[in-house]
Design a protein around this nucleic acid. Structure first.
Lengths: 145, 145
DNA sequence: CAATATTACCATGGATTTAATAGGAATACA
DNA sequence: TGTATTCCTATTAAATCCATGGTAATATTG
């Protein structure tokens, strides 16, 4: 019942891009160093976002990545559903359910459907902007103290 | 972000035992057939419950397993935490957190802690008895129609 | 305009975990 | 003593995570 490194690294990468929005294209090298994540592994995570209107890309010197939309238009749930494939805790409770032999008779199915709902509802309630704001709040509090 | 087969099979096994409480010890053969789960794999799942006051065991002919408590005294969350090790979606949000280099500075930590809470709260709100009751309700409705 | 350096992109492989399958030893009842 | 059962220990097959090495595109510089 773990979020994979793919999803966690992808989120940290997108938050990093959001924090440095004003700097234009950001290279993977920069992100990998700042976040202490293998650059080579990040390279494998990025293609997952192809054709999803998440990232903009530029190759060559001064190239890199930037967010395609403003941070308040990404939810954590949306990002994780892309990287993880689905957030459903079991395949039979997914949006596009994989039915098992027991079908709708399964005593556990309602439990899993309920779990799927609380997970997705929670993660869809948080945007990248919320994460930036919370960070900013903490920083402000530290400053006051 | 999946519940492993260990947890899913364990739950179905315990629900099966709850459904047949009145029959005394139930053999793995019976459960495996009824639930269409590999008996050999179930044998490996059971020892996870050693020293947890979940099951009672009897070897030899007429042996098998039975619940150690009444079904309303097991929550789904409790069972899954035993089989899965922890339900925390990331290790840093677990009860006994594995700290990472970023420690409490991590911008994602509050998100994961919140997710951990909604998952555990939901799963702790459901007991084995609830699952039996819901099954009974559905059966009753079918009968009326 | 050509060379070069910088960047994204692509394919493969190894280590570790998960999900089973398999064989047999220990135990207890009849 | 025989047999039904739990218990224990490999072995295998697939997926996941991450590292390595090489290729292609492009902005800058001379």
């Amino acid at each position: 019942m773990k979020i994979s490194t793919k999803g966690r690294y992808a989120l940290r990468m997108l938050v990093d891009l959001a924090e440095h929005q004003q700097n234009g294209f950001i290279s993977l090298n920069e992100i990998a160093k700042r976040q202490d994540i293998s650059k080579k592994y990040l390279e494998q995570i990025i293609p997952i976002f192809n054709n999803t209107d998440v990232l903009r890309t530029s190759r060559g010197p001064q190239g890199g990545y930037m967010l395609a939309k403003s941070p308040d238009r990404y939810t954590v749930g949306e990002i994780l559903r892309i990287t993880e494939g689905s957030l459903a805790p079991v395949d039979c409770a997914a949006q596009d359910p994989v039915e098992c032999a027991r079908g709708t008779e399964c005593v556990m199915l309602p439990v899993w459907q309920g779990l799927n709902k609380v997970i997705n509802d929670y993660l869809d309630s948080i945007t990248l902007q919320d994460i930036l704001d919370r960070e900013q709040d903490r920083y402000a509090n530290d400053y006051i103290i």
